[in-house]
């Protein structure tokens, strides 16, 4: 299967071309954020405060990495389960967030908001954390340092391997994949 090379930031066109099941290698800047950081960002949105980074065209990676070992750019960092971010996601999509990387199912409300705003949900391999950590060339904390592994980090990544799980039309690999496989047995 062809592998698509994608560079951040994302645009409506780049995102519209991605289809559920596509294998993608992401390069460029992405941001990390998980439970606690999402809670704070959505509170900032509600209060009209400035967010740690401009959402427009960005990708958030749901990850809480291990501490970085000396001599490395980043720790082990595979995706965390995305549904815990569901409640906080639509307001960020409304601000122009174009991509999310995680693992696991999303709520219908998130999928509707993705369709409305033209965003994609990528899956990284859950548990392949040492492998994924190697794609991160540079990492720095940009907000909520007190949250430790949950702080918001700016990552420079090279060929970060992901699969499109939900595309801008709302097609869902968690439904399509197993159904297609079951037809072959």
């Amino acid at each position: 299967m062809e592998i698509i090379k994608l560079t951040t930031p994302l645009t409506a066109e780049k995102v519209a071309n991605l289809k559920t099941g596509d294998k993608v290698l992401i390069s460029g800047v992405i941001y990390t954020g998980r439970d606690a950081a999402h809670k704070r960002m959505v509170e900032q949105v509600a209060k009209g405060e400035k967010l740690p980074f401009e959402m427009e065209g960005q990708i958030i990676y749901y990850v809480g990495p291990t501490p970085t070992k000396p001599g490395y750019a980043f720790g082990s960092g595979g995706p965390t389960t995305s549904y815990r971010m569901d409640a906080y996601t639509p307001p960020l999509l409304d601000l122009g967030l174009k991509g999310m990387i995680g693992k696991g199912k999303r709520e219908p409300a998130v999928i509707e908001s993705m369709k409305k705003n033209g965003a994609v949900y990528f899956g990284a391999i859950g548990g392949a954390a040492a492998l994924i950590g190697k794609c991160v060339k540079k990492a720095e904390i940009v907000a909520f340092e007190d949250l430790d592994s949950e702080a918001v980090r700016r990552l420079e990544v090279e060929d970060f391997p992901v699969t499109v799980i939900i595309d801008t039309k709302g097609n869902n690999l968690y439904e399509i994949g197993p159904a297609a496989y079951l037809k072959t047995v």
């Binding site: 990850v63 809480g64 990495p65 291990t66 070992k69 720790g75 082990s76 960092g77 595979g78 965390t80 391999i125 548990g127 392949a128 954390a129 040492a130 492998l131 950590g133 190697k134 592994s149 391997p161």
Partner: peptide, 21 residues
């Protein structure tokens, strides 16, 4: 195959195999 590679990297470089330790 990627998971197998991940476990090999973790063991050879002394890295946590998964970030959720």
């Amino acid at each position: 195959a990627d998971l197998i590679t991940n476990y090999e990297i973790a063991a050879s470089e002394n890295l946590p195999m998964c970030q959720d330790t």
